[in-house]
Amino acid sequence: MLVFAASDKGGTGRSVTSANVAFRRALAGDDVAYVDFDFGSPTAAAVFDVPEAMGGVESGGLHTYLRGKAAEPVRVDVWAETEHEVLRDRPTGAGNLVLLPGDRSGGEFAVGKDVLRRCTDLFLRLNSEFDIVVVDLSAGRSFAMDMALEVTSLPELRGVGSRWLVYHRWTRQHVIAASGLVFGSRGILAGGVARGHDEEDLANRIRFVRAAVPDPEAAPWAMVPPAQSAWMRKCDQDLNELAAQRNVGYTRMLGSIPLEPVLQWREQLITDEDVLSSRVANMETLQALKDLAQALDDDEAWGPA
């Protein structure tokens, strides 16, 4: 299954959350590929702690492949190449976890017919090999997003399942922006329909993920003076109303990741050790990531909203 990770704005935790979801699925025994289509600023290697691919690879990455300068893009076996001390010991029963990095000086580029064909071949190949293929797209409307919409509309890919995750932070501006990215006149749905997707079918394959969501009832927010606490509860309630109005409400939400100090400080994978032994990360975060990972192919969470 192809899982496209999109967001309207940067800083939504799209890459770091998607990487954590990929990591969770691999731990559960799936073969997972993480494709870094964030052509402007490839960050996935930093999250997976793979130094050679940091900020993209020197050459032979996805840009080189899509431009036709390499027959296959470079792959990084995360379990083998990571410097992360916990990840280096691949757990028994874990599936493959492979990163396909972009090129360091790649940038965005125009999508021609040849690029589309190569992207089609890439998606078909990865789908034949991996249970889950996470494709991390740049923030906002990008060439990568257009390419993803175009390729998934082709008859060659009709047998390949694809789903979209749209990340946003839990603020007014982010909720409005995420709604615009999906339902706006230049949004994913309109772009998809223009390329031959069925509107209803595509809408059923798009879900929102809230990231860095503060919980007014949990620490440290529950400790604040009553006036602040009341204000926060009101904000949360208003946001829920706004989200519902803008079609970003509960029925279209696949997951909600709590505000996590570890992720605020550093884009990284949250391991069980971070929660259970060193206790630097919160149990709620780990559980939310596990739930989101599981929801990817839970058919009850998808379909008509």
Partner: peptide, 20 residues
């Protein structure tokens, strides 16, 4: 291989995942 593999007669729903 890619040229043959993208042929429209193939439904891309192989019974299991495998590596080349």
């Amino acid at each position: 291989l890619a040229r043959v593999a993208r042929h429209r007669a193939l439904d891309q729903r192989a019974p299991f995942k495998s590596r080349r």
